[in-house]
């Protein structure tokens, strides 16, 4: 399991990334994250849904209720244009951090 801080920090980019591949409902997003992380990313509903509210309030995602073939209707989320551009920023930042760490942890390079 990841640390609390890391989970909190990565929540927004992960959710936005999942939504950038197509709309999804809450439970689906959670399952996707769980699968991708091989069980390391455990979110509670209490973390995820309030975040969805916040992202919606910021205009990064939008939501729509759709009927379901089994049981009550579901609320689907999709990324907005604004959300996509925020995701691009997030992406470059994460890649930036990633590459720094990789350089530091990789084989030592002669500098200069």
């Amino acid at each position: 399991m990841f640390s609390k801080q890391l989970i909190a920090a990565s929540l927004q980019p992960i959710v936005l990334s999942i939504l950038s591949r197509g709309e999804a409902y809450g439970y689906e997003i959670m399952q996707r994250a769980l699968d991708l992380s091989e069980g390391k990313l455990i979110w509670t509903a209490g973390t995820l849904y309030p975040l969805m509210h916040r992202l919606e309030a910021k205009g990064l995602i939008s939501s729509i209720w759709r009927p379901s073939e089994s049981g009550p209707r579901r609320k689907y989320y999709r990324i907005t244009v604004k959300g996509a551009s925020v995701l691009e920023t997030d992406k470059s930042e994460w890649i930036g951090v990633h590459s720094i760490l990789m350089k530091l942890w990789g084989p030592e390079l002669a500098i200069g």
């Binding site: 409902y25 379901s68 049981g71």
Partner: peptide, 8 residues
């Protein structure tokens, strides 16, 4: 409603 659906 959303939470209920989640539980289900």
């Amino acid at each position: 409603e959303e939470l209920e659906r989640h539980i289900r």
